[in-house]
Design a protein around this nucleic acid. Structure first.
Length: 359
DNA sequence: AAGGCGGGGAT
DNA sequence: ATCCCAGCCTT
């Protein structure tokens, strides 16, 4: 979009005016505190606003500042993150908080490269926090902005291809309204989210449609090009909910050589992928991994669980035992407490089925 | 450059 | 059912 300086000024003016008139209130927009902006940006990585809001509120209430987060136990951090997904974000968030306390005076560093060096902070998040919290002149490029810029310039091809993404970053930086970097970045993102949507964009309401090359050429529906999608994999997983007389169940972590049947780094029920006979596969698994001779197992109603490119059918089994096996990397927990534990949503689905059955 | 990592809302 | 989201990290 080779814009004349005058046209560029008008472009910026239109979009900023639109944003300031239509800006939505979000919990993280109540102020521009570096901690709260950072927390929101990490939660928003690949995660929709509506999904983030309740997690943000609860997390902030429990960990109101960098120091509190740095002092917390990782397990408690994960517990409040449970269900939001991409759990390495929570671990990295806390590691970064400890870095900030140790090396940056308990604050989010105001230097871009120092921010980038923190765990869980990539180019997007560094630019977002620095621009919004500190008015530093760094343009963000996320999925929304990429789509908007690609349409403005009629960019063909997969936007996520590293080469093309780099060029889009340069475009974003050139367009940045340096007198209001935070508002500018948020304006572009919000435009992409509410007007310049992936499907059926509302060009009639777009404050910058007169600069849009895709619209001019009738390419709005073919830009961005569809992303190359990894083939979806169907998986069937049998999971064991063992119950002792006190209503406690067994959770494991890093289940053996199986590359994390569900979520390798979270507590979960003993589980195994199966082809034909789930009960037999699960019994074998329990004998092999836990050295435990399973009781009669009752098959519970199946549950669906979609995760990234996997489409999982969960087949829960429930069995009562006199005593739970004691193994390394395992813990016992009342089944009723799983709902509030640091476990994934899949694990909570299984727990719910078992709880319903046990009653 | 490619693959792994969660989960759910919109279409 | 499919898409893709205020991405990051490792290989």
């Amino acid at each position: 979009m080779p814009l004349s300086p005058r046209s560029l000024r008008a472009f910026r003016r239109n979009l900023l005016a639109w944003f300031r008139a239509n800006r939505r209130e979000h919990p993280w927009r109540r102020d521009r505190d570096h901690y709260r902006v950072w927390l929101a940006e990490v939660m928003l990585q690949q995660t929709r606003i509506a999904a983030v809001i309740p997690y943000y509120e609860k997390f902030l209430a429990r960990f109101p500042d960098v120091q509190t987060l740095a002092d917390a136990a990782e397990h408690d951090v994960l517990r409040l993150w449970a269900g939001l997904g991409y759990y390495s974000r929570a671990r990295n968030l806390q590691r970064a908080a400890r870095e900030m306390v140790k090396r940056h005076g308990g604050k989010f560093p105001s230097d871009f490269d120092a921010a980038l060096a923190l765990p869980g902070i990539g180019r997007y998040t560094a630019a977002a926090v620095l621009s919004i919290a500190f008015d530093a002149p760094h343009a963000v490029l996320d999925g929304n902005v990429a789509r908007v810029l690609a349409r403005l310039d009629a960019v063909r091809g997969d936007l996520r291809a590293p080469q093309r993404w780099k060029k889009l970053e340069a475009t974003a930086q050139a367009l940045l309204a340096r007198e209001a970097p935070g508002d500018w970045n948020q304006a572009l993102m919000e435009l992409g989210e509410t007007i310049c949507t992936p499907k059926s964009p509302r060009c009639g309401e777009c404050p910058v449609s007169r600069w849009c090359e895709a619209r001019k050429r009738g390419l709005v529906d073919s830009i961005p090009a569809p992303r190359k999608k990894p083939a979806g994999v169907k998986q069937r997983i049998a999971a064991a909910v063992l119950l002792d007389p006190r209503g406690r169940t067994l959770l494991v972590r890093d289940p053996g050589s199986h590359d994390g049947v569900l979520f390798s780094r979270m507590w979960q029920f003993p589980a195994v992928e199966f082809a034909k006979n789930p009960a037999a596969a699960l019994a074998d698994h329990l004998r092999g991994e836990l050295r435990f001779d399973p009781p009669p197992l009752v098959e519970l109603p199946h549950a669906k669980h979609g995760v990234t490119f996997r489409n999982i059918t969960l087949v829960p089994f429930c069995g009562r035992v006199a005593a739970l096996p004691v193994r390394p990397r395992s813990r016992r927990l009342p089944l009723a407490e799983i709902a509030g534990a640091a476990v994934s949503s899949a694990t909570k689905k299984i727990a719910r089925a078992a709880l319903h059955h046990a009653k």
